[in-house]
Structure formats: structure tokens, C-alpha cells
Write a protein that binds this DNA or RNA. Sequence first.
DNA 1: GCGACAG
DNA 2: ATCTTGTCGC
Length: 270
Amino acid sequence: MEVVRPEFLPDPDRSREEMEDLQREIAATASFEDDFGFDVADVELGESPTDAPTAAESVGEQVTLTDGDAPVVVGVDQAFVGDDYSVSAAVAIRDGRVVERAAGRAELELPYIPGLLAFREGDAIVDALESLSVEPDVLVLDGSGRIHFRQAGLATHVGVLFDVPAVGVAKNLLCGTPREPLDDPLPEGARVAIEADDSMDVPDGTVVGYAYQSRQYPNPEQRHVNPLIVSPGHRVSAETTVDVVEATCTGYKLPAPTRLADQYADDLKD
DNA sequence: GCGACAG
DNA sequence: ATCTTGTCGC
């Protein structure tokens, strides 16, 4: 795929103030409403934990063998080789099958700075996505989208760069306030809205994402799983973001596209 | 000044 | 993110 907003490339040589200004521009360009051409219900479940038949098969529905109509979901994740460079892996999935994998790499020029993650990892991600030949219907990135001080987290930055629908999936909350406390274990499937607080650029109370309990143990009192923190990147609403993530979480905490990109990135290290 | 902060 | 084995509980 191709960068369509090169003026938004995450140049790590900019000053911190320039980076933040760029993020405000990106947020102003981003759309946090549904604007894509596929049906979330057509996102086929990824590979199952076992050799069990897919959900559709076990219900006895006829599996459509025609390729090309099911949405292409692309998971993106990074791994690091010391402090020198990062590798980015993009794994494209359609109908629960891997249809393409792409790799990218870039020198690390910045330390990790909360709020500026895209300037540390962006180059490698762009490198990987530029070498991807299929056109993704939606990207699943590791990190925040709209849950960000200036509404321009990694998922928003990358989504706007390529003008492609994108969602962010994080394991921890960067900012914002959950409508309900997340301390106690949530039941599987639970969704808790994340509202903007005064550390953010948006009016207080704006729903900028959700905590989503993709998986939970039968007895959460003794051992429980933390919820995912999901937020829209670009061209997807907060609610639809959860729908997309839910459709790709197949028996594990993390979405299948993310897990596959994660393991591919690890392989790229050696 | 202190705390809080995706990966 | 990364350095790393076993271990507890489903």
C-alpha cells in the first residue's frame, strides 16, 4: 500500500513541539466515524486454538469459498533488536487465513516517550506496510488510537498516513477515565466506555474508546485476565472498533492478527 | 514540585 | 518493548 499523506510521516528528527503540532493536525484530519466499505459480520474468525472447525462450519453453514469478498484484516506489531533498530511485521488475514506477510525495519532514533510512540516505531511500520501488496480493509495496530492526549495515537497516525480504516489495541490505558472501575474482574464480552479527562484535547466525557474483556477465566475471583483497551484509529467509530476487535479475538486475549504479527516480528529478530 | 504515562 | 523457568489455576 501507499502513503497518501507524506506530510504526516513521523520524522523522528523533529522537535518535541513539532511532533505535538503534527499530532494535532493528524487528529484534525482523522475521522472517528464509520467510513469503510465492508460488513464487520463478514470478518471471519481467525485460526482456532485447536483443529476445531470454524464457528461457521460448526453451525453447519456453508463455507463460502470465493475469495475476494471477505474483508482483509491486517495485524501490525513490532519487536526490537537491542537499542539499535526495530522490526515491524504485518500479517494480512482473510477468511481466517493468512494471505500475506510483510516485514519492515528502521533505526531507532528516539527513546520510548509516552504520547510520541508513533515517532519511535512509525518508520518501521511504514516500511512494512509499503511492501504489502494486498489492500487492507482495516489495520489492527498495537497501541492507542484516539485514547491519546492529542487524539493522535499510533493507530490514528498510521491510519491517516495511508487513509485506511484502523483500530488501536493496547494492553494498558494511556489516559482517559473508565466509566466503571476496571479493578474488579469483568465478565467475558464486557465493554466499559473510556471517557476523555482533562489530560486530553477533547471535551471531558467524550467516549474515546472502550475497555473490552475479550477473554476471562471461569473463576475470575482466583485468577483473572485484564481487559484490552481499544480505540478508533481512523474511519472507525469507538463502538465499531470493539466489534472489529471482538470479531478477531478467537479464544485468546489478543486478536488473531495481532498474535500472528507478534510472532512473525519475533521470528524476524533472528 | 509531584504524579502519570501505549510500546 | 526486553531480560527469563517454573508454576499456579483453569
